[in-house]
Write a protein that binds this DNA or RNA. Structure first.
Lengths: 340, 340
DNA sequence: GTGAAAGCGCTAACAG
DNA sequence: CTGTTAGCGCTTTCAC
């Protein structure tokens, strides 16, 4: 690796002190110097190809201009747009993000957080937490600024960017009710994850509010946000033998898996069963059965999260923020009039 | 932010010198100390919650244990698995990766590289390069270890992990020929990107080798690796009026866009036209027309890339590596016997 | 086997 | 306005 150009190199080249160079290169302090001096230094820096050593800067200033971002799984198409939203905003403010994934493993998440703490990240954006989450606790305990996005914890100890799952469920339900469905099943997602939990309770509460009695046989648990989990849950639902004309799946992958299993058992979607998903994952409109779903503003969530962590950094004593974004129903071809 | 625990804290706590603590905590040097001393230090470190300050380490050692990874676009489903493969391997070796995306913009890529250079990354893995690419040149010029993955540059100046596009095209072509197709169109991808270029020439060469005359009217250019570009290219192909019974698309997204446009113009896939794609993007089997495609080992490419950059770091004078991985045909439902 | 001290590249008092 | 100097947290040579 070629020897790096340092402040000292520029200083010697110009016959001035390193601090002069440092001042000239920093917009905050450059006004201390004559315009002429500034020009000279900047020119020399350009000429020699100077790039500031962020490590030294960080060591000195005690902040690294870095934000750690942890997502459960890069392969789940929900997260890349969030990450992109985060990076977009952070880069603009000359922050860098370090991404890691937790594989939905709480220990891994904590390991990553410690690793990043060692890298002096200034704060965290977590899309990975469970409703109870040791990694969030760790951050709080160590007074490391942290905000949660998409998923969050139950305890009211941290800034949150979430979507209004109640509203999402309401829109899904209203849509199905309008189509005449009354026997509406739910494939719930893991209850230790906020989205799974909130959607589950929203379903129960809203059904009741609409005067529909809850049939416990119509509620099954998927043990992950995945296709396979959707298939399996549907298998169980069908095995129970209770009749239904519509299914609300806790996310799109589960919904797609559901449709697959329905068809395998000779039920067509939407002719026999309507299905609605959650999240509006990319390219969903291109799927075999274009899924009616609840669209969530992922990139915007990411941006808001980035904005919020920077505010929190600037103002650690700001009251806890809780930002709720509105999802919206996207009707496609997996839902139809109830024929029952 | 809570005060960080440093070596000095542990040293004072124990009444020893910081260098002793440093030695105890580093496996390489801990053998200098008595077992007893080692134990004491480790215990104290645990107790106080010590985490090494990577910035200080990096500043001292001149290496940051960080690799910069640049992909053109996180949203293109080809890249997350590559990134994941990279991170998997790097993490195991206690390296951290910093991800950035270039949006296929050469200036942005270069900006990101300079930014990361400032963060003292030890090397780069680039999935972003064009066939001629200033960011690769920059790395070479500044003697920063760099390897390219998936895409690469023409010049033979850098380590590469690529797939055998010739073989991929051959498998696609053979499959179509076996089904009786002779009038096979190509939707080429941007020619300034290695995959686009290689697939284009493989098509030309292999067609000729198989005794099929090339009809220039059957070759159209998509101006991106996207759905929309696929639609547009297909529109042009159809407008030219030349007859064809099969299309090879330079990637899956283009292929899907192609099918969409075909159907819009009342041509069914695979009944009227067979289509094959490239890359086997996730969930492709769930699409309306499950695309026959050329599968590439993305996670493995990422892992190999990570492995290679670490080797290159260890041994800068190692001869240039050029690793070629084999793709393989995946037959699904977008290809059928030629009825022409 | 362990301590003392220098120094990685940078910034920020403090002087002048 | 600019130079001097100390020090961020760590590793490592050199002493002892």
């Amino acid at each position: 690796m070629a020897r790096k150009v340092t402040l000292k190199d520029i200083a010697e080249h110009l016959g001035v002190n390193t601090s002069t160079v440092s001042r000239a290169l920093n917009p905050e302090t450059s006004k201390m110097l004559t315009a002429e001096q500034n020009r000279r230094v900047r020119e020399a820096a350009d000429e020699l190809g100077y790039v500031q050593n962020t490590m030294a800067y960080a060591l000195k200033k005690g902040r690294s201009m870095t934000i750690g971002v942890i997502v459960p799984d890069l392969m789940n198409p929900v997260f890349p747009p969030i990450v992109k939203g985060v990076m977009n905003h952070l880069n603009k403010q000359s922050y860098t993000s370090i991404i890691a994934y937790s594989e939905n493993d709480i220990d891994l998440a904590l390991t990553e957080i410690k690793r990043m703490k060692g890298r002096q990240v200034d704060g965290f954006i977590l899309a990975s937490p469970f409703r109870e989450d040791a990694s969030v606790d760790y951050c709080i305990e160590h007074k490391i600024p942290v905000i949660t996005v998409h998923r969050t914890v139950d305890k009211n100890v941290v800034d949150k960017i979430v979507i209004d799952n109640e509203s999402g469920m309401q829109q899904a339900l209203e849509h199905l009710l309008l189509l005449g469905h009354r026997r509406i099943a739910l494939i719930a997602a893991p209850q230790n994850i906020s989205d799974g939990y909130q959607r589950y309770w929203a379903y129960r509460n809203l059904l009741t509010e609409n005067g529909i009695e809850i049939d416990e046989d119509l509620i099954v648990q998927a043990d992950a946000f995945s296709l396979e989990a959707g298939r399996e849950a549907t298998r169980e639902l069908l095995a129970r033998g209770a009749s239904f004309t519509a299914v609300i799946a806790s996310n799109d992958l589960i919904g797609i898996g559901c449709i697959e299993e329905l068809e395998k058992q000779n039920l067509r979607c939407p002719d026999d069963v309507s299905v609605v998903g959650f999240n509006n994952m990319p390219y969903l409109d291109q799927f075999r059965v274009p899924l009616t779903t609840i669209d969530i503003p992922r990139a915007r969530m990411g941006e808001k999260a980035a904005k919020l962590i920077l505010e929190r950094l600037k103002n650690p004593d700001m009251p806890l923020q809780h930002i709720v974004l509105e999802p919206r129903l996207l009707v496609r071809r997996s839902t139809a009039l109830c024929k029952g």
